[in-house]
Computed example of a mutant assay.
Amino acid sequence: MSRIFFVLGKSCSGKDTIFRYLKEKKELNLKTVVGYTTRPMRVGEENGKEYFFVDRDELEKLKIEGKIIECRDYDTVYGIWSYFTVDDGQINLGKDNYLYIGTLQSYMEMTKYYGNDVVVPLYIEVETGERLSRAVKREREQSNPKYTELCRRFIADEEDFKEENIRKAGINKRYINGDLDKCISEIVETIRKI
């Protein structure tokens, strides 16, 4: 049976780094699924690689066509940014195993759409102070740092990833990212077993 290995965690938990590693580990043979967003590209991002970057008109068109699997809207200090998953042919469950990255909400919607037996959570955790330090460092590297948005995301994560929400999502296993190599090894072992 095909699986969708779903990487999730709070901002700056290392999920992007872990996602990239798993994607590049050829022996796992995981196909990636690229999500969509209406937010602007960050420095170093490429359209179709981290996300498909689209405007609000394209999002509305996809909604009308019934292709949206899940969509999350964030009221940022720069306006509404949407992140969403589209049934656009990237996933063929009879053929391959997949790798996806998203939020707790998007994980829950994906499990509704594809089923709990198909979507496997890879929940990454990092100590709160370390996450904040990483977030500030990453934002400093941007040509136009958005510290207010960083704070909004950080606070929103505390609400979104409350323990009751994690339990409600049925997530029992956590991968602690205090030591990146150890965390990745644990995740790779999980994928191999499944």
Rank of each mutant, 00 (worst) to 15 (best):
L30G: 00
Y74G: 00
Y51H: 09
N92A: 09
I18A: 00
R174F: 12
G14M: 02
K10D: 02
K10L: 02
W81A: 01
V77L: 12
R3I: 00
G48S: 07
I124Y: 03
E141S: 11
G178D: 14
Y123I: 04
R192K: 15
K63H: 09
G178C: 05
I91D: 05
E125R: 13
L150S: 02
L104Q: 03
C151G: 09
D87T: 07
Y74E: 11
R152N: 04
V86I: 06
N92K: 15
S82M: 06
E46I: 00
V7F: 00
T37D: 05
V118L: 06
T190F: 09
R167Y: 08
C151M: 13
K173Q: 13
T128W: 11
L99E: 13
E158H: 07
I101T: 12
T32I: 15
V34A: 04
V120S: 01
I68F: 07
V54P: 10
V120G: 03
R131L: 09
P121K: 06
M1F: 03
I18C: 02
E163T: 09
M41R: 13
S106V: 04
C71R: 04
I184T: 10
T190M: 04
I4R: 01
T190A: 04
S82N: 08
N92Y: 10
K146T: 04
D96Q: 02
E125S: 09
K23S: 14
E60M: 12
I101D: 10
S106A: 06
V136F: 11
R72A: 12
S13Y: 10
K26F: 07
L30I: 06
E46G: 05
S185E: 14
K25T: 10
G79C: 10
G170K: 07
I166Y: 00
M110T: 07
G178S: 13
L132M: 14
S82H: 15
V136W: 02
E65C: 11
D157M: 14
T111P: 01
L30W: 02
D88T: 09
L132P: 01
T148P: 00
R42L: 12
K95A: 12
C71P: 05
L22N: 11
Y113D: 00
L59G: 12
L8N: 14
L99I: 14
E45W: 05
I187L: 06
R39T: 03
S185Q: 13
V34G: 10
Y123T: 04
V77W: 08
G178A: 08
K112H: 03
K61E: 11
R153K: 14
N116S: 14
R56C: 06
E141F: 00
L132Q: 08
E159T: 07
V33I: 15
L93C: 08
V120Y: 05
F84N: 11
K168I: 02
Y21E: 15
F154H: 15
I69L: 09
I4S: 08
N47W: 00
I176A: 03
L30R: 01
D181Q: 07
L93A: 08
Y74S: 02
K26Q: 15
E24T: 12
G9F: 05
T85S: 09
P40M: 01
I187G: 04
